[in-house]
């Protein structure tokens, strides 16, 4: 956007860095186990699907074969969906942990500086007349006319996580 001080986003950098570190730590903690569980599940489903097909091939009837193909595919789909659900649960868990650790920034010794930076940023974006309020979960929200700005810590945390997705997505990626 034009007319803004360049590098203004730098005031947010410490917040983002803390949040990023928290997210990566969580990934390291829960990621490995999750991946192993998922892989085991898929492998089991693959064996079951192969078994169904082999049985049908032995039975030799066309109808049996096509029915078996369908069933074995369904087994794989169900396993796949279970893994997906599991991964999504992980994602939500991660989100929650990052949100909590973001809120915890309020007790960080750097918080007053951070807050000052966010207030400055809010005025830069909405103008000097904007009403800036500290958020109960940390960070600020601001308002000027019909425009509002949400720089609360949970929101910033969610944003940071969203932008990190290529780094953390291995958790829930195939």
């Amino acid at each position: 956007m034009t007319g803004l001080p360049t590098g203004a986003d730098a005031t947010l950098a410490p917040v983002r860095d803390s949040l990023r570190a928290a997210a990566l730590a969580t990934v390291a903690e829960i990621g490995h186990d999750a991946r192993e569980r998922g892989q085991a599940l898929l492998a089991a489903a693959g064996r079951e699907a192969d078994g169904i097909r082999a049985a049908a091939a032995a039975a030799g009837e066309d109808a049996a074969r096509s029915e078996a193909t369908m069933r074995s595919a369904r087994v794989r789909r169900q396993a796949h969906e279970t893994v997906l659900t599991q991964r999504n649960a992980l994602r939500l868990e991660l989100q929650e942990k990052v949100r909590v650790s973001a809120t915890a920034l309020r007790t960080d010794p750097r918080y007053p500086d951070l807050l000052a930076g966010l207030i400055e940023r809010a005025h830069a974006l909405l103008g000097p007349d904007a009403t800036v309020t500290e958020n109960e979960d940390g960070g600020v929200t601001a308002e000027a006319g019909s425009r509002r700005l949400d720089l609360s810590l949970p929101t910033l945390a969610a944003d940071t996580l969203a932008q990190m997705s290529p780094e953390v997505a291995d958790l829930w990626r195939r």
């Binding site: 986003d9 425009r147 700005l149």
Partner: peptide, 15 residues
């Protein structure tokens, strides 16, 4: 595309 979303993106409009 993968740069952090600018804080402007946190401005919401209500008019």
């Amino acid at each position: 595309e993968n740069l952090p979303r600018k804080a402007e993106g946190r401005i919401s409009h209500g008019d």
